[in-house]
Design a binder for these strands. Sequence first.
DNA 1: ATTTGTATTATCAAATTGTTAACGAATTAT
DNA 2: ATAATTCGTTAACAATTTGATAATACAAAT
Lengths: 226, 226
Amino acid sequence: MEVSPRRILVADDEPDILEIISYNLAKEGYEMYTAKNGQEAIDKAKAIKPDLIILDVMMPKKTGMEACQALRSMPQFQKTLIIFLTAMSDESSQIRGLELGADDYVSKPISTKVLVSRVNALFRRVTKDDDEKILIFGNIRIDTIKFVVFIDEIEYPLAKKEFELLYLLASKQGRVFLRNEILSQIWGREVIVGDRTIDVHIRKIRQKLGIDCITTVKGVGYKFEL
Amino acid sequence: MEVSPRRILVADDEPDILEIISYNLAKEGYEMYTAKNGQEAIDKAKAIKPDLIILDVMMPKKTGMEACQALRSMPQFQKTLIIFLTAMSDESSQIRGLELGADDYVSKPISTKVLVSRVNALFRRVTKDDDEKILIFGNIRIDTIKFVVFIDEIEYPLAKKEFELLYLLASKQGRVFLRNEILSQIWGREVIVGDRTIDVHIRKIRQKLGIDCITTVKGVGYKFEL
DNA sequence: ATTTGTATTATCAAATTGTTAACGAATTAT
DNA sequence: ATAATTCGTTAACAATTTGATAATACAAAT
């Protein structure tokens, strides 16, 4: 069911390290992005929405810890995995890192083998938790627990199929879902329903929410976008 | 009244996780102990007599579930709180866990914030066991001690099943409970009763209370909402 | 102008829930 | 112990909501 590659953002001020890490994780099939300092890491994270962020502790502009703290304060990065790269082997910095919400840390000098296996291990453990079934995009909140969509804290109840459809699209913001994908994801393998059915549900969502958050990509499918 | 700190035993085969959990719960004032596998957890539990045991499901020597079963069979651990750490999100393992007597679950990857709040909540539940199982929502009061619902200080007596149902829904305000969830929570795992039974009880609650506090989510379930 | 693809609307069938009444089981009162 | 009452469940049917389709309108591309 999971198809798109995991996105990883690495932030370090040493270009060599950036390159080594990127190269090795890309080889593992990850989609790599880089940043040269803490501030850039934050900015890029917002745009890229990575699944994992690797932060060097010592960086100009903003340290890894400051960046981590800033990121964790934003709702959309509350569940994003974060790994610290630290030259310090003393526990105090590691503990501080954990306190700020890091999921793991790797000490310098890095062994690419160690890093890769830690990254893989982290992803292997990712499964949906009850506490993370809520999608937030600015003033829009898609809440699977309450089965309701909020826009500016106002509740918009959707029917089951409508909600499922919206949740599917929003779960990968910006990604275009082919009509086939939508059908098999929501209606199952043995689909009997016709293509028009999707349109009608899309229409109802647009109508009920009153905002333009689903974009039609003619001849291809639909995507969630703001 | 002076209380000795609560003792918590954590068992996991990954030293990092052990450290993260220990650190964060120690910060909360708990007295932490660790074990590297299921067998060690059992041995240490006997010596330490912890108030809460956190067990990773997947461990060498003895799995968390095996350890739980072994502990629960000993009289001195019948009332000890047990939390499972599970990477699995599928119900089957959670259901098995419940059967074995777990008090809660936390899915991996662990958010320390979630874990800490769950632990605190569990202890809160234990202490308030006898004196404060009362839910209050504005002018509505659901009083488990008196087994009665108050609305504006007027008493509305409910039958047992009705009360249990209302309490379940209200215990997680806004959260949708699937019919299956309701059935297994209130009627137990070996459910024989039909689906209409829920409706009828819901109806009686609505009728008796005279207010609209239960919302139907068609095709999904019910939720408590004001 | 024609083709291709999507939007919109109305309509109907199916799925789901609401409601009522009835009846045995469990509980309480006599 | 027996009668009276309450409770939990089910069945039957009504009411409602939902989902799917067809028909038509519209838009863009060729």
